[in-house]
Simulated scan of single mutants.
Amino acid sequence: MVIPVHDVNPARRTPYVTYALIAANFVVFLATPGVASSLTGDSGPSHLAQLCHLQAFLEQWAAIPRELIHGQLPTTVPTGDVGLGATGRGCAVGPPGYDKSPQLSVLTAMFLHGGWVHLLGNMLFLLIFGNNIEDRLGHIRYALFYVACGYAAAYGFALVNADSTDPLIGASGAIAGVLGAYLVLYPRARVWVLVPFLIFLPLRLPAWIVLGFWFGLQAVYSSGRGVSDAGTVAYVAHVVGFLTGMLLAWPLRRGTPPPPQPRGLLWGRRAHHRW
């Protein structure tokens, strides 16, 4: 696993859409029920109440594969209240008090995250790689591209898990599309990464290695091999989003100027040649 921290590929224009997406994701996350308990570590009765609020919130705003594929909306959903059942206290259920559009839920789900690690990891990748794709596509086309990759990722995952009722949340599918486009348009751009080897070792690697390695891991994990939490992370959505981004960016490949050749420190020594 490598952690990207910076790419050597300056953009010509300010990435307003990328900044707006990052800001929107943070605002929605902080407004999501349950964030307060994750910050304070509360595990008492108030934690159960917030958990019930979170379940109701996700049921309404997250994408549900079964709803996307079959169009079947549930007749009972979490209400957000704490109830008392045969097995003790839990989250109460009842008829939904809202009208939900499964298609629109894909868009709202792109701004929901399950925790700080989920959010910060996604926003880091978007910040590093999104500015150059926005620079190449322009603000409007980039926004449409981002949404298209997110939709493709969500529906791709839903097709493989058509009967699942687990909420699908996160910007990972859309951001995977950004990574796929970056691989097509800027494969030789240099990316500073941290590699955990006893300590975090900083290295500058070409984008095709960094992003190719990332995609390879997602492909392996999507098959359920080599990871224990494959059922809680939508690796299939990452794969579909990445391939969609590559496909949409491919026609622009020949007209994209190469990134500048890096100068300075490389592998701990001063570089005297270009590669």
Rank of each mutant, 00 (worst) to 15 (best):
101 S>D: 14
102 P>F: 04
120 L>V: 15
128 I>S: 00
114 G>I: 06
108 T>M: 00
121 G>Q: 00
117 V>T: 13
113 H>F: 08
126 L>E: 05
112 L>T: 10
133 I>V: 15
119 L>W: 05
120 L>M: 08
109 A>V: 09
127 L>Y: 10
98 Y>T: 14
133 I>L: 07
132 N>A: 12
124 L>D: 01
98 Y>R: 09
110 M>A: 13
131 N>L: 01
121 G>N: 09
114 G>T: 10
103 Q>P: 09
134 E>M: 11
98 Y>G: 05
108 T>Q: 01
111 F>D: 00
122 N>C: 15
130 G>R: 05
108 T>H: 06
129 F>A: 00
108 T>N: 03
110 M>S: 14
121 G>M: 00
117 V>W: 02
133 I>K: 01
130 G>W: 02
133 I>W: 00
124 L>G: 07
102 P>S: 05
124 L>I: 10
129 F>M: 00
128 I>L: 03
125 F>H: 12
109 A>G: 08
130 G>Y: 11
104 L>S: 12
127 L>S: 10
112 L>R: 04
126 L>V: 06
131 N>G: 09
123 M>C: 03
111 F>Q: 02
132 N>W: 04
107 L>T: 15
131 N>A: 13
119 L>T: 14
104 L>A: 13
108 T>A: 00
103 Q>I: 15
117 V>H: 06
126 L>N: 11
100 K>M: 07
111 F>P: 02
123 M>F: 05
104 L>R: 11
116 W>F: 14
112 L>K: 03
115 G>T: 08
107 L>Q: 08
105 S>Y: 10
119 L>F: 06
104 L>Y: 15
123 M>D: 01
128 I>T: 08
101 S>Q: 03
106 V>A: 05
99 D>F: 09
126 L>D: 05
100 K>G: 05
129 F>D: 06
105 S>Q: 08
120 L>Q: 10
134 E>P: 15
127 L>Q: 14
115 G>A: 07
127 L>E: 07
98 Y>S: 03
121 G>E: 04
115 G>D: 15
108 T>L: 00
126 L>I: 14
127 L>C: 10
117 V>S: 02
125 F>Q: 10
